[in-house]
């Protein structure tokens, strides 16, 4: 099973799981802005009345979703992540959030997943802007097990939602088991006075960094924030018990992202924990060569992050 999921990736694990609800519940509708997926064909093949294609027109995607939600539908919209967030941001604000409608936006290509596609396809501000919208729930899963669980979570909790997926080929973190993805915050690697708090692809990087840190004599735990908003502070603080230092790790702009969220949360809760924020600085990235090249050039690779944390800790 795990090998199959590896090939499918987050998006398709989600779609396969969503299809079960879509098939049983005629009130679930799916709108795509000319984006496909191997697992998506069954949606229009088996339930053509619930599937709509607007073409490359994301304002229309969200506006139409609003109209359908007003008619009682639970709507899923689908596009590449930047186009379902930044491209139609005002539609997200007015047509979804201000009217508090059951619309779930699915965006593929979180962070630098579309590495060599350049800044038009990089999605490194979505967490900031989407969490700025009242009523919006923001999911940022790290693997296909979490993604699969999000199908039911999104279906059972109708409201404004955004789910950001990486591309296919991301390895698994969780595997089969009873993981509490609905908590939104999970401890993936226990122990240690340093906490690496990460989201999305960076949970994988955090686990590698934790291994490197252990070899250098620094014990670290890894916490996966798979739901950015609303942040489950209770669970977060539970997993931070005994921690002396916190490192946030995100493949995202530092402005308003996960690190900012932690800083805000600590401040609001009078938590005086040293916080090192690792992410992207205030810049667009034009580097070619692939995601690992981007990581290496911008301090997001395992070696750079490990060294930076070691310098900070000592």
């Amino acid at each position: 099973m795990a090998s199959t999921k590896f090939i499918l990736g987050m998006r398709d694990a989600f779609f396969n799981a969503l299809f079960e609800f879509y098939k049983k519940d005629p009130e679930v509708v799916f709108i795509t802005a000319d984006n496909g997926a191997p697992t998506l064909d069954q949606f229009y093949q088996q339930r053509p009345d619930q599937y709509f294609q607007v073409g490359i027109a994301e304002q229309q995607l969200i506006g139409m979703a609003c109209g359908m939600a007003l008619e009682g539908k639970k709507v899923y919209t689908y596009a590449i992540a930047p186009f379902v967030t930044t491209r139609c941001y005002e539609q997200n604000k007015i047509d979804i959030c201000a009217m508090n409608l059951p619309i779930c936006n699915i965006g593929v290509g979180a962070g630098y997943a579309y590495d060599i596609m350049g800044p038009t396809h990089h999605t490194v501000e979505d967490l900031t802007i989407m969490r700025a919208l009242p009523n919006m729930t923001v999911h940022s899963p790290a693997d296909s097990y979490c993604a699969e669980a999000l199908a039911e979570i999104s279906y059972r909790n109708p409201g404004p939602q955004y789910v950001r997926f990486d591309r296919a080929g991301v390895p698994e973190i969780y595997g089969e088991g009873n993981h509490k993805f609905a908590d939104g915050v999970l401890l993936t690697c226990p122990g240690g006075p340093v906490a690496l708090v990460a989201t999305g692809i960076m949970v994988h990087q955090a686990q590698k960094v934790a291994t490197e840190l252990a070899e250098a004599g620094v014990k670290a735990r890894v916490i996966d924030v798979c739901r950015i908003k609303p942040l489950n502070t209770e669970r977060l603080f539970e997993y931070l018990k005994g921690v002396k230092r916190v490192v946030s790790m995100e493949e995202h702009l530092l402005t308003g992202g996960l690190g900012s969220l932690l800083a805000e949360t600590f401040s609001d809760n009078d938590m005086r924990l040293p916080l090192l924020r690792i992410g992207q600085n205030d810049r667009y990235v034009f580097d070619m060569g692939g995601r690992e090249v981007i990581w290496e050039k911008h301090g997001l690779d395992v070696v750079s992050m490990t060294q930076r944390i070691l310098r900070w800790v000592k």
Binding site: F52, G63, C66, G67
Partner: peptide, 8 residues
């Protein structure tokens, strides 16, 4: 756009 969703 909203009207098209309702109409559809």
């Amino acid at each position: 756009p909203v009207a098209t969703g309702i109409a559809q």
